[in-house]
Amino acid sequence: MKIRNAFRRGFSLMIHHRMIIGIIYLVNLCIALLFAVPTFILFHEKVGALLLRDDLLSGLPYSWWSSFHFNAEGLEKTIRPSLAGFGPLLDNLELLLTGQIQSYGWFVICIGLAYLFIAAFFNGGAIALYADERRSFSTGRFLSFAGTYFHHMAALAVTTLVLFALVFKVIQPAIFSLVDQVVGDSLSQSFAWSINLIGYALILVLIFLLTLILDYAKVILISEKKNSSWICIGLAAAFIFRNAHKTIGLNLLLVLLAAALVLVAGLLSMINSSQLLLLILGFIFQQLFIAAKIATRLTFYAAETALYQEYAAARETVKKRKR
């Protein structure tokens, strides 16, 4: 199967089971709202009566924010000027490369962990539906598949966490200590900047490869009905190694899609106005972006499943012929 075909098939699978997007989006929204509402109330208590509230419509006046932040505690600490426009996406992308989630406090770590396992639960359902030949969607089947594979998906999520902890606590410091050695006594900051950029690029590649392996581990586990997630990681690595250009190529294409999505969102976020109508429009765009982001993640799984199944089918054919 060509990369393009796997992508197409993945995309059509994702569209066919579009209800999954809806379910995940709703869960995402509800969990976020669960914490956004208290944040709103806290914020409202602080600014609802302030004279400065009029200025807060167009931006976070720095004079206000600095004293608010100085006295802020817990959740309030996460209110910052970079929440405006493109900022949240940049903040989160930075987090992806640094792993410094603790900078947002324990509270965010706890919600993140909870969501990680919820996402793992849905992953099982989604991949099982994508791998299922019947190609029909029902919420019941989706949830039942999700339940069936949850313990495996959760085990893989824990493995992922351990691996990424290793990346951020061991490999990343090693990379940057190397970066510092290369920069050495150079007085050129542009040189240091470029070398650091290479350091971050290496981390990005590492994240890409790890995600790739763990994605295929999930696909293999469900497609092959395996019992050990550890074995599946090994099988996934072997599969990717044997089909490097296809698997990596497909995921690069998907990353490109995600990047294009972020870019569009970035452009739309430049609409920064204090007009109520534009504020509402901006909010709708943001929600569409979240849904599109979920769809993109699901397209990854669907396309990977399609590619792997094609490979498995070809292998079966060869086996039959041999017999």
Partner: peptide, 15 residues
Amino acid sequence: WGAAWLFWLQDLLEM
């Protein structure tokens, strides 16, 4: 700003 915060958290969760 509550909506901006909500969007940040939604995006963070998806990441």
